[in-house]
């Protein structure tokens, strides 16, 4: 009897774990089902090469490039800001700061990632953009610069926290060796510790990129809703995520081509983040083995 009960419990626990597989399958099936319907009507070549994205206008174009460029531009700005800052923070906290400071500052920084993104969007639109406009006169009210920078603030803790963990995990004997040779902390950090922790740091950067590409509300609020194939950070653009929000807010008929566009956009986004996540997972596994 007891054996029977144990078996039932194990099976139901297993079933819960299998739900996660179902979620992944669900995502892949839903996205590809609607995307396949989409590509029946829109040739995939047009989707990949057309430089205009105007599914909601009468002259319809379905080129993903403008949305992709918007996504990459905002993400690039965010990463270009967050990686140097986040990495500097991680080195400072791990090698320079007193231990007590480390204990208080890490949770404080992680608070930055806990702020809801819609709040960051408001910050970008009402504080950062007006501030930047005071010395960039041509800056539009919606722009990728301000959205990207604020997104950068949001992902700082992703970079700093994971990189700090990686630096912290470097064996102390290497630190001693470098100091013993007369290295300054800076030389020790950049010549010995950062290379030794490189896989962990790379993982943190990849996760940050993946996070930036999938971020929605900051760009939807502050970067604008105008699909445009440009790398000018001062003008409004539209990201893949913003487009999905824009369509969802409107009144689009289920089963229509417009409805399917959001799944075509969604699968593009999913493929990008899936690749990034897979790469980071691989590196992380390899990295764990190295130290075990």
């Amino acid at each position: 009897m007891r054996k029977f009960k144990e078996a039932i419990i194990e099976k139901s626990l297993l079933a819960s774990a299998l739900v996660t597989i179902l979620v992944t399958l669900g995502i892949i099936l839903v996205l590809s089902f609607e995307a396949v319907n989409f590509f029946r009507e829109v040739p995939i070549i047009d989707f990949l090469t057309d430089t205009q994205w105007t599914p909601l206008f009468s002259d319809k174009h379905f080129g993903i490039l403008p949305l992709l460029s918007g996504t990459l531009l905002t993400s690039f700005i965010a990463i270009a800001f967050a990686v140097p800052v986040g990495l500097s923070i991680s080195i400072y906290i791990s090698e320079y700061a007193p231990k007590s400071f480390r204990r208080t500052i890490k949770p404080a920084l992680e608070l930055l990632a806990a702020v809801p993104t819609v709040v960051y969007g408001f910050f970008a639109l009402t504080v950062v953009t007006p501030f930047l406009q005071t010395f960039i006169p041509g800056l539009s009210g919606f722009n990728s610069l301000s959205a990207g920078l604020v997104m950068g603030i949001m992902i700082i803790p992703f970079v700093s926290s994971l990189s700090e963990d990686a630096l912290h995990a470097v064996p102390n004997s290497l630190r001693e060796a470098a100091y013993g040779m007369g290295s300054t902390k800076l030389q020790n950090s950049f010549r010995v510790l950062v290379p030794a922790a490189s896989s962990g740091i790379i993982v943190s950067i990849i996760l940050a990129i993946s996070r930036a590409i999938g971020e929605t509300m900051i760009v939807a609020i502050a970067a604008g809703q105008q699909p445009r194939l440009t790398f000018d950070p001062t003008v409004p653009v539209e990201t893949i995520t913003t487009y999905i929000v824009q369509v969802s807010l409107g009144d689009v008929q289920h089963g229509s081509l417009e409805y399917r566009t959001i799944f075509a956009a969604g699968i593009t986004l999913f493929i990008f983040t899936f690749l990034l996540n897979t790469i980071s997972y691989r590196i992380r596994k390899k990295f764990q083995e190295k130290y075990e």
């Binding site: 992944t24 669900g26 999938g214 971020e215 990034l276 997972y281």
Partner: peptide
């Protein structure tokens, strides 16, 4: 799979 799900953008869950 779980590690991947943690990295899927929230908007994709919306589509699901």
């Amino acid at each position: 799979n779980i590690s991947n799900l943690a990295g899927v953008p929230s908007i994709i869950y919306g589509l699901l």
